[in-house]
Write a protein that binds this DNA or RNA. Structure first.
Lengths: 159, 159
DNA sequence: ATATTAATGAAAATAATTATCAATAAGGAA
DNA sequence: TTCCTTATTGATAATTATTTTCATTAATAT
């Protein structure tokens, strides 16, 4: 019996870890699994709770540390939607179909992803990016576009 | 002598306050003055310190409270750049020439405003906004566009 | 000038995140 | 496999930004 957390098939990110000299540990594997399964808008605490279900020994500290590591490796992206807690998502690059932008309700905090219309936006962003990198000698790695306002519920309930 | 903090000429926002039934107080006047004078990326603490120079009786609580009020009135806008402290700027609307977007260095935290190339972006955003509001019944009030990456210094020092 | 009540500021309370440090476990070497 | 080195972990304490509480103060209408 290979232990309760058998190695299982090697994942796409194992190489990235090895390449950087990082160890592939159980907490890291499960945190990535959780991020991969739920994808959207998870706070550190959300992640902690989900991981905790699978691997109760996890500590919140480890979650924060791992998220930090993953950010630095470029595997995940951190968002601040203005409610005082950060959210994390697997960073599929801008070209991948799951790339999306956000609508954020400033009243109830609801976050809506949209993937429609992103294509045109991306085209323009690519151009802008090129100009900006040149002008400011800035190496652009990623971007966010967020629209703030009132969602349907909050908009009508305020009338 | 009209007192150390004489009323001075009525400011553009006096009407907005009166209209909402809010009182025009010394702390509020000075906080707005500070925001108006420095405009960019001030944290609550930055604002507190600047106001404190002019009006030492100010309390940090009042700064937070006033910023909250100003956000709700739509006079200022709150940004989260991911370093754990919020920044505030006078919200000149998207049409005004000072409207800008941000380049954020994920290494040193430097924030660069750019106003170039914003016109094209705005045009597209306006279109996108229209489509999104319809599709998601979302009342869009504002937007942010931020590019994340490495500034010149951090980019070269990492090679 | 006075009364009413919104606004203030000091201090305590929260909440998210980070630092500390002894114990554990991953991965290479024997 | 077993041992060794050292990165990683988790419990706890420490920070830091922001909010809440509440008695005092001051802006406005009268």
């Amino acid at each position: 019996m290979p232990g309760r957390w058998g190695r299982g098939p090697a994942k796409w990110w194992h190489g990235e870890f090895r390449g950087c000299g990082y160890r592939i540990t159980i907490p890291r594997q499960i945190i990535l699994q959780v991020l991969d399964e739920s994808k959207e808008h998870l706070s550190a605490e959300d992640i902690y709770l989900k991981v905790h279900n699978i691997y109760p020994a996890i500590g919140l500290t480890t979650v924060y540390r791992t998220l930090d590591l993953l950010i630095n490796m470029g595997l995940i992206f951190k968002f601040d939607f203005g409610d005082g807690r950060a959210r994390y998502e697997l960073s599929r690059g801008p070209k991948e179909p799951s790339h999306h932008h956000h609508l954020i309700c400033t009243n109830c905090g609801r976050i809506i992803d949209y993937t429609d219309f992103v294509d045109e936006e991306l085209e323009l962003l690519k151009k802008t990016e090129k100009k900006l990198s040149k002008k400011y000698s800035f190496e652009i790695k990623n971007h966010t576009i967020q629209f703030y306002g009132l969602c349907e519920k909050c908009s009508t309930s305020k009338e």
